[in-house]
Design a binder for these strands. Structure first.
Lengths: 207, 207, 207, 207
DNA sequence: TATGAATGAGTGTTCATTCAT
DNA sequence: TATGAATGAACACTCATTCAT
């Protein structure tokens, strides 16, 4: 009995998280009221506070969980596919990134767009986690430059570009379109690797 | 003297717009209260309504103005630099985009991230404008594929990638950094053109 | 020129009154905003104050004008139709009342239902005017009792009843119905005169 | 003890209703602010919304409750005093009406004068209820005409007159006056019955 | 744990009124 | 007289949060 109570509690909390992810994704953190959240979960507003401490902590929890998941999964994947080849490493990173993000549309969106709604301390905590992730790609690109595999000027700039490109995928990718995740992955991988390889200098046009 | 009346009104409205851009950029549309906005402009809350009809229309106005500005400027620039060369055209698009966006940090951010806060009708209006802009790049890329200048699979996908990459620049670019706008522009131009040129097929690794 | 200005001013004021009567009739005094009124008249809100001193005074003016009109017209009519016969006098009062009220639907309604919106001083002023009117009927009824024409217990009670009955006519009478004003007048006159004549005592049922 | 919670909620709602009746009677619906209402009940403004859904619904609830009460009580009374005699039936209706209305001054006034403040749907709902009540009297009068007990031209017109007369009683009747309810009842009953009996045709004066 | 009522601060918006031009 | 901008108070209503039961 007592176990079942705990079990129900955990199930309720999971329902709260899932509902919160969807509501915040749809309306944004500020526009998502706990009234609405409670209703969606089938609780009275006050009862939410048996499961969460407050709204800000709920947001932080959602984003932090996602980031922890991301960092852990990325480490596992990259460790499993480690190679000395920079091109192969970058390709694996892209592959991992797309796979991981494509079916976490809500979490991904919130983790970017609601950073602003985190209070200072929580914001810095998440930002630090994000930098760890970004640094993985920056490192791979830098290493490639050093090894002569990539010919680009600034690893950080290009890495930011690539990450922005990847991060936006869930916002326009439609799982039910004829376009498969694998097709998108191949296109982006080829595009990025060619971009990094860098044989063609830009025409030096004066604007 | 008499002219100053109208002039004052126009000046007040301009102040409202500027303050709104900054506040919405900082806190988001939902979290930006008209009280705060009024205070920043030096008005009583109710006096705002001598200049705007409501909060939603203010947001719409800000975004629409920005998008109109974007489309007009883009047309002018591209018309002025028209060439038969796909590579040159894409390069000009990138050059224009970065130039235009880099010193419109607030407008750019809001025009993306607060689409969700627009009501249905306004949302569709802005989305249609955005598509016009996106289609410019998609067309250039498609044309390049047709002419054999670019070797990529799907013009739309890659164009979305490029746009995402470009759109994110104001979020990480710091005007006071040693890195100049021109340097960023060159890096991105080279990266994108090489990506589009596309000599290197991806290693077909099964994940 | 100067005359024409004054003339325009008077015309504007007349338009304000008419619009106010209709708006207050429709929405009530509290729910009628000066914004709406100004719009209906084709002025900006602030410009109203070139014609009225404030909202309360406008209401007072509307009601007082109506009451003055009522008292003056009633005096004229009753003086013109004076007779020694109580029955004839009451009949004339009823006839006058219906005639006067039927095509002043707005004024009548407002003069009753918005008494509550008058401030104390204005309320008392109007109430005094109303009592003068009510006393006319009460006097006629009292006189009829004294002369033995009417057989009822309390002139005031019955007079109030009759006045209530008459006052409500504009609220249900529809000028475009097959029922004419004259028909209504006849029905009410007969009913009231028979009621006042009073031959039949009520069955003394214990409730 | 535990029961007291529900009990408190119900007691609060009852207090809200009573306070609302009095305030709306005094100042009108539009001029009655929820701030004032809350203060009178001893709540914060927002706490009202634990009991009502909005101001309009509160008004609707007050009027609807009154009308339901009226229709139910009227049915009970008339059923209990049913008789084949039209004069007795009308007398009972009048008796019931006065009894019922005299000590419901607030409800009665609001239910008439604030119909205009109901939104369209609620207005039509209440109007339909009112017509049921009015039709009771109209039916009695019609039946009396058919049976030859009453001699008047149009049952509807006269019934409206009688209802207006009765409806206004609470507005001038003072419970603490020497005049008793029973006295008023007798006077009105006699007046109406004589009016309906209708022996005297009106003098056909041309105004 | 859930409930329902309460809190107190806050929201966007409207109001009658004023006044320099 | 008309205008357009400003005022300052008020409005109905929602919010996250608390707490006795």
């Amino acid at each position: 009995m007592a176990r079942l109570t705990g079990s129900d509690g955990r199930r309720t909390m999971a329902a709260i998280q899932q509902a919160a992810l969807q509501l915040i994704y749809e309306h944004g953190y500020e526009a998502t009221s706990l009234r609405l959240l409670a209703k969606k979960v089938g609780l009275h507003t006050g009862s939410l506070y048996n499961h969460i401490s407050n709204k800000q902590e709920l947001l932080f929890y959602l984003i932090r969980s996602h980031m922890e998941d991301l960092l852990r999964s990325c480490s596992e994947y990259m460790d499993a596919h480690a190679s000395g080849d920079s091109r192969a490493d970058v390709e694996h990173f892209i592959r991992f990134h797309i796979r991981f993000h494509v079916d976490r549309k809500h979490e991904v969106f919130i983790s970017y767009s609601e950073l602003r709604s985190l209070d200072k301390q929580n914001y810095e905590f998440i930002t630090a986690m994000r930098q760890i992730y970004e640094n993985r790609l920056i490192s791979l690109v830098s290493a490639g430059i050093d090894k002569g595999a990539f010919h680009i000027g600034d690893a950080r700039i290009v890495a930011f570009g690539v990450l922005s490109m990847l991060a936006a995928i869930p916002s326009w990718f439609k799982p039910d379109s004829p376009l498969t995740v694998d097709a998108v992955t191949e296109q982006f991988t080829a595009f990025v690797l060619n971009g990094l390889a860098g044989s063609t200098p830009p025409a030096n046009s004066n604007p």
